[in-house]
Design a protein around this nucleic acid. Structure first.
Lengths: 123, 123
DNA sequence: TTATATGCAAAGTCTTTGCTCCACG
DNA sequence: CGTGGAGCAAAGACTTTGCATATAA
């Protein structure tokens, strides 16, 4: 456990959103300027493989990360604003297990992203 | 509608799996060698924006495509073999609508991917 | 014709890696 | 002290783009 990794872990723990590598890099260098982007990528990859981190992809080419220690949740992506809303639905979790099982699989992970627009006056 | 686009569309219609750009390019040039990879990318992007195509990302860096005209379904990704299994679950579809609505959103699209390993003797 | 699409190659993004040096244990 | 990590810069993988040419309508 090196200083750099500690800092990157800290950045991810305290991050409110879902930062990408560049953002992690920016925040990390604010704490200790002796961190390179390469190290961010290496650390993020390592943490991901260790299950410490989750990798999110919303289809815009870059990966975003979040602390996996936090309670599990899925994401709703606001198409208009780009906002990411987190949610949990126990019913959904159960249903996914059921579906996987029905297909002859043991569920190891899942990714579920809803894409929507805000309801205003309508409905 | 140019010849190239027609061929790319044809390749996607007849494709059994979920080809990436390179694979589309290979199949397309087999039909007519006068198609460039750039055209594949441009066409695929165009079709995606027109809603003719769906773009899938399984987190391995490249996008894969499938004909959107086909019946909607979700995917289960076999972690060990890389196989992609398609499935539909009406209950899941309804549940997603419900969740989005509860969060104050109108569901426009969703992406749901299960990642699992085959059940053998276990269970 | 006349706007639009294609090819080619160069450029862009995001991410990974080789190599040397430094640091943790 | 030695093994593994960090920095830097170069390389990679995938995708996009500028420009001149070709083509559909």
């Amino acid at each position: 456990m090196t200083g750099q990794r500690r800092i990157i872990a800290q950045v991810l723990e305290t991050a409110k959103g879902h930062p990408d590598a560049e953002e992690i890099y920016t925040e990390a260098t604010a704490i200790d300027s002796a961190i390179s982007l390469a190290t961010v990528y290496r650390t993020v990859k390592l943490f991901f493989e260790l299950g410490i981190l989750e990798r999110l992809e919303f289809g815009d080419g870059r990966a975003r990360y979040e602390d996996a220690e936090r309670d599990h949740h899925d994401h709703l992506f606001d198409i208009e604003t780009g906002a990411v809303i987190e949610f949990v639905d126990p019913e959904l979790e159960v249903l996914q297990e059921k579906i996987a099982h029905r297909l002859g699989y043991r569920l190891m992970a899942h990714k579920m992203e809803l894409f929507g627009v805000k309801l205003d006056k309508e409905d």
